[in-house]
Nucleic acid binder design. Structure first.
Length: 595
RNA sequence: GCCCCUAUAGCUCAAUGGAUAGAGCGCCGGCCUCCGGAGCCGUAGAUCGCAGUUCGAAUCUGCGUAGGGGCACCA
């Protein structure tokens, strides 16, 4: 709200100072306004004078004073159109080369009024301007129930989707089903083995088969539903058909798990469909026509610049060829070539050439056919090597710059007996989301998943989490919300709420003002998450809002205060409730009325 | 070997290149005639190492050290 106005005022003052000859002509700089760490330095500050010191050949303090002299201070109405006649919005002060801005108490009061006016709209911004965006998340192999590794993926993805929605995008949520390829085949064989075992046959699991209990359960379920009819057909066919049934059962269960997590999808997209629809071949032909597909020893390679593969190399697996090179400035150079079809794969509509090959038509489908921009991919760090390839493919296909954005998050490891263990679906040692939800519930799960930056790995210690459950910040935040609801209920019952004072609300207490400053930041936080795609900022912010409210609640009585004070405080409590509720909802958590 | 990510308080994590690096948990010490004590206040405690860029570095660059991931006809 306020920030954009400040930037505009500073820009104007800078231009005026130059026009008046106080400052020499200067190069254009990026004018930023930030929150000073120290409250004594005001609510906002700009460092323009420090940035201009060198080009202007003047001391920063002097520049700041000159700019400040040309600064016009707007009335609150300029920022909050509904609030007229409340005086200037802020004061400006030059300290050590910074220009510090402090919102006037009247302006803080206008902010509270504005938040209440916006009500359910509070926290929405218009960054997207109605454009279509997609967040693809989840997308684990349908070869087992959802694990907590997928949990991080979906919670991050869903929160980003919520954020983009709040930021004014029309958001589509998609799960990509990797229902093609060899893992699916092995999964089918594994389910078949468990199925046969359930029917009393001594059928061994395939090599590198899936060992988890979930696959056992799926096999037994199919045995119970379908009887022994699959035992009377060729094993290969049985494994394929049972594999499909298994995928369906697994996806059903995953959808159920997602619903428990308060996550819904607009679409589940089948990888296989990219090839059965013919789009895959179409894209390969398009790339071939552009000279970007190379045939070598019967294999098909994608090469961004069409450069030939070195002769004598039957495969690009050698280090030299596969390594992503960097130029002198450290900028990545294009990957030389990526395998898209092996000579060993017999073309088969149920098989797709390679995993990467599917990414090409999928990207096209997202951006060119369905018109998503941005199309956001939420990927685990095991896909990190695919990032430059997908970008290369996007460039080769001529997708608009920036249409594809990839979010990489670090893995979750499991603490077991003081040791970190990497989970694996095939190994069957992965912790399932459902089991964890039984223990701690969806709100705590989502909060925990969001509480760490996606760039840091997460060592998951179940015992510690269970133990900490009661003192989790989740409850502190939700408690703040529930407490406000309780206050509002009581205020209604006991009739504390009087008429609004004619000349507007007033907040003189430091704890009131600190709380207002905090809740006012919500749109900035939404913008921050929408642009950085780092959702952990919400957890920090929610904790801060709840903390500021607790302090306010300790210091400032509502009940029993003079009517005007009580009214203003009640409104502040309401604005805080709206802020907490929105933040919790962005995180996909509930905002309970009572606990 | 090459590429990506990470290293901040005893522990788990924050900090759009800004001013005195913040929280939670844990430790120690205070606060309930009162709107919900799942709370509030206070004490102690930290930027992996060495250079560099910058008016200013936890943040950017280089070289180390330690950990994770990737460089599959797995996904």
């Amino acid at each position: 709200m306020v920030r954009a106005h400040l930037v505009a005022q500073i820009t104007e003052a800078l231009a005026k100072a130059q026009a008046a000859g106080d400052l020499p002509p200067l190069p254009k700089i990026n004018i930023t306004v930030e929150h000073p760490r120290q409250a004594e330095m005001g609510d906002y500050a700009t460092n323009v004078a420090l940035q201009l010191a060198r080009p202007a050949k003047m001391p920063p303090q002097k520049i700041a004073e000159l700019i400040s002299r040309h600064l016009s201070i707007p009335d609150t109405q300029a920022i909050f159109p509904a609030s007229a006649g409340r005086g200037p919005a802020f004061t400006a002060e030059v300290v050590g080369g910074f220009i510090n801005f402090r919102l006037t108490p009247a302006c803080l009061a206008c902010a509270v009024e504005e938040i209440i006016r916006q009500d359910a709209r509070w926290g929405t911004i218009d960054l997207g301007k109605g454009r279509k965006a997609q967040v693809e998340h989840g997308s684990a192999n349908p070869t087992g129930y959802a694990t907590i590794a997928t949990g991080r993926n979906v919670v991050v993805g869903d929160t980003l989707a919520n954020t983009l929605e709040a930021a004014g995008y029309q958001v589509h949520r998609e799960w990509y089903i990797n229902d093609a390829g060899s893992q699916v085949r092995i999964f089918g064989q594994s389910v078949f083995a468990r199925y046969a075992q359930a029917l009393g046959h001594d059928e061994p699991l395939p090599e590198r088969g899936y060992l988890g209990d979930d696959v056992k359960e799926v096999g037994a379920l199919i045995a119970a539903r379908e009887g022994d009819r699959f035992l009377r057909m060729p094993k290969e066919q049985a494994a394929r058909e049972i594999g499909q049934l298994g995928i369906d059962l697994v996806m059903e269960r995953i959808k159920h798990t997602m619903a428990r997590l308060n996550i819904r999808y607009d679409n589940f997209f089948s990888e296989k469909s990219l090839w059965t629809s013919g789009l895959g071949e179409q894209m390969l032909n398009l790339l071939r026509a552009r000279g970007l597909v190379i045939e070598h020893d019967g294999a098909l390679w994608f090469s961004e610049d069409g450069s030939p593969i070195r002769s004598g190399q039957g495969s690009l697996r050698s280090e030299e060829e596969y390594t992503e090179t960097h130029d002198d400035e450290g900028k990545p150079l294009p990957v030389q070539a990526v395998l898209i079809r092996s000579p060993r794969v017999i073309p088969n509509p149920e098989e797709r050439p390679t995993y990467f090959a599917s990414d090409i038509p999928y990207a096209w489908n997202k951006v060119m056919i369905r018109g998503f921009n941005p199309a956001i991919y939420v990927w685990g760090e095991d896909h990190q090597g695919d990032v430059p390839r997908l970008y290369a493919a996007a460039r080769a296909l001529g997708l608009p710059e920036g249409a594809i954005r990839i979010v990489i998050y670090r893995f979750i490891t499991l603490m077991s007996g003081g040791q970190e263990v990497r989970m694996g679906k095939r190994k069957g040692n992965a912790l399932l989301i459902d089991d964890l939800l039984d223990e701690i519930g969806a709100d705590a799960f989502r909060y925990i998943m969001l509480s760490r930056s996606i760039d840091t790995k997460f060592a998951f210690d179940l015992d510690v989490l269970k133990q900490q459950n009661d003192e989790n910040p989740v409850y502190y935040i939700q408690y703040g919300h529930a407490r406000i609801c309780s206050i509002e209920r009581k205020a209604l019952e006991e009739g504390w709420e009087t008429a609004a004072p004619a000349d507007g609300l007033r907040y003189d207490h430091p704890s009131e003002q600190a709380l207002i400053r905090k809740i006012m930041q919500l749109p900035e936080i939404v913008e921050l998450v929408a642009t950085t795609l780092q959702p952990h900022h919400y957890t920090t912010y929610a904790r801060e809002v709840a903390g500021a409210f607790s302090k306010f609640y300790e210091d400032c009585r509502i009940k029993g205060s003079p009517p005007e004070v009580a009214y203003a405080r009640l409104m502040l409590a309401r604005a805080t409730r709206l802020t907490l509720a929105r933040t919790l909802r962005l995180m996909g958590m509930t905002a309970p009325d009572r606990m």
